[in-house]
Design a protein around this nucleic acid. Structure first.
Lengths: 352, 352
DNA sequence: CTGAAAGCGCTAACAC
DNA sequence: GTGTTAGCGCTTTCAG
């Protein structure tokens, strides 16, 4: 297994084995119907090993006509762990079907994005997955239309544009149900201030769960804050004035900030107040005190489903919408406790 | 710009323009020395536009012999944001030199890793970057040796294996200096319990900084804990009993846990105690209260430097070690305050 | 200034 | 059972 400067070619293997190139091709690709004598087969294998031969995938795709690449453009691989999970899911599914992923990180830069798509097109990818790190409405870049593509974690308003997105409403419902099932009846929701499908969906889910439980929706119980730690922290006083026993936060980061404010005021979780988040952002949710019950964004599955959709593997169900929603599963940890009557009517006073 | 089922080829463009394939090739590649009449050039360009022609990169590399791919295998794209930053840096640098990245996520699975490397080899990559999400000693997978490769964020003991890693010692020094410069003289270090280059390096940096400041190293001021939030939280009492005015934590997660414990005991940061972390893990460091001063792990630069090393772009400096260390810059936020004598000798009592 | 021809590494008919 | 031939889309001498 010495390392020649130029990798061995199939023809060289053929010469070394004293056979023709086609014969080598046949044994390399293990063609069923090819009748090759065991002796020849052995000679070929030996030559392959001796020369350290590796098939040239580029040449293979050139002749077969279709490449084994699928492109994946992501807008934020570097700044959140979310894109990583999409990649992971997409890769597992793609490999399962013999495809390799050509990934490009655009960090939101339009020029980069265009270059990335161009590069993929020139490599004759089978198709392109266009993904965003947070669920949103997206434009379809023009270059993208030259390829078979599906949107992942984003969607377009145009007809027929395929997309895979998380089911925010179902997730919001799960989150709220975590609280309802623990006996809570006065449940606040701290929504985000910034418009997004998640904002509407998570609220819709909250309302649906309340409805199912026969609880009236009280708009006064819905607060809004910027969806990060600072936002959650800043919402503490308003929240405590509501006299609720439980709160469902738009996301985990907000819940983490809320934790800080709550602790400063001596309100214990889940003793005095039950909290659930959304996103299941591991570094945060699993490690705050107490670990946060939340609802997971199905990024891995989004990536995998995107590949299946691109490859036409999921049952077509013809007339259906080309936007498929994948469920957000609840992740129970330790921030939800049973409802206590005491807490309901006398929220602990804030410390000075 | 209609979309044909099969993409147009160069030959088709030639026919449409009424010229030969070679002419088209010449105008596509803007060859300097090719004398093509403006008129012909225009006809070709029009045909290219009309047919929506895209060069086939695969065919190009077949003839040119060398592909424009660089492989990047990562062990944890999905579970930390770190790998994402390596990817980002590697991609920017690779693109700058006309290379596309073929990325594979192995999530620590050896078989996947092998498949990934095989896939890259078969696509005749120019070389491979083999990266890990935390800085560590690594084996060099056998398949990797078939390619030109460099280790990123990990290294091997074998001679001559090129690698790019963070300079932990320099980083530890920066972290400690943040505290020293604020006037602190009794500074604790909470190291990790698990062995790693970071454990040794960050400690060495701490000692070096103390030394520089003319401060004696006191082994009693070095604690150890598991490097996550829980570990930091659990170390609070031991830390408070030390009577220090500042603490440098092995990483940001630990510092975040420490924050929780400190708050429960009424110790304020940075009022009573200054804290610095390590890693600059954005979601955490930038959003705890108060925002954490820390030292950044240079993942982006690691990826970029890896590409440059692979391509032989960094000045060789022949005899030098093939392991290059890239510096970890300090990131100042708000967790470091001036030293106060009061705090030094009377740590606030722990609350019950 | 432009075209014809060879060939990159491989596969797929079709011979023998 | 195995070899021959043609050709995938492109670049590159080398003619003219």
């Amino acid at each position: 297994m010495n390392q020649p400067s130029r990798p061995a070619t199939l023809k060289e293997v053929a010469e070394a084995a004293g056979v023709s190139p086609s014969t080598v091709s046949l044994v390399v690709n293990k063609k069923k119907d090819a009748r090759i004598s065991p002796e020849t087969r052995r000679r070929v294998r030996d030559a392959i090993r001796d020369l350290g031969y590796r098939p040239n995938a580029l040449a293979q795709t050139l002749v077969s006509g279709s490449s084994r690449f699928i492109g994946l453009v992501a807008d934020a691989i570097a700044t959140t762990p979310f894109a990583g999970q999409i990649i992971h899911g997409a890769q597992d599914e793609a490999w399962k079907h013999g495809y390799a992923l050509l990934i490009a990180n655009t960090e939101g830069n339009g020029d980069l994005e265009n270059d990335a798509i161009t590069m993929m097109l020139e490599h004759k990818v089978r198709g392109i997955l266009y993904s965003t790190w947070f669920h949103r409405l997206s434009e379809v870049p023009d270059a993208l239309r030259e390829a078979d593509f599906v949107l992942v974690n984003c969607f377009a308003t145009e007809d027929g544009v395929r997309a895979v997105v998380p089911d925010e409403a179902q997730g919001g419902r799960e989150a709220t149900e975590l609280l309802v099932r623990a006996g809570h009846r006065r449940i606040a929701f701290i929504n985000a201030t910034i418009p997004a499908p998640a904002k509407d969906g998570r609220l819709a889910g909250y309302r649906a769960a309340l409805d199912d439980a026969g609880l009236a929706f009280d708009p006064g119980l819905v607060l809004e804050a910027y969806p990060d730690q600072e936002g959650g922290y800043g919402a503490v006083d308003a929240l405590l004035s509501l006299g609720v026993t439980a709160v469902y936060c738009y996301n985990d980061r907000m819940a983490a900030g809320l934790y800080d404010g709550l602790r400063e005021r001596g309100v214990s979780v889940p003793g005095d107040l039950s909290v659930v988040g959304f996103d299941n952002q591991e570094v945060i949710a699993a490690h705050v005190r107490p670990p946060l019950s939340t609802v997971a964004l199905p990024h891995y599955e989004l990536g995998a489903a995107g590949i299946r959709m691109l490859l036409g593997l999921d049952s077509p169900s013809d007339g259906a919408s080309p936007i498929v929603k994948v469920p957000c599963p609840a992740v129970e940890r330790e921030s939800v406790g049973p409802h206590t009557r005491a807490a309901e009517f006398s929220p602990p006073p804030a410390s000075p």
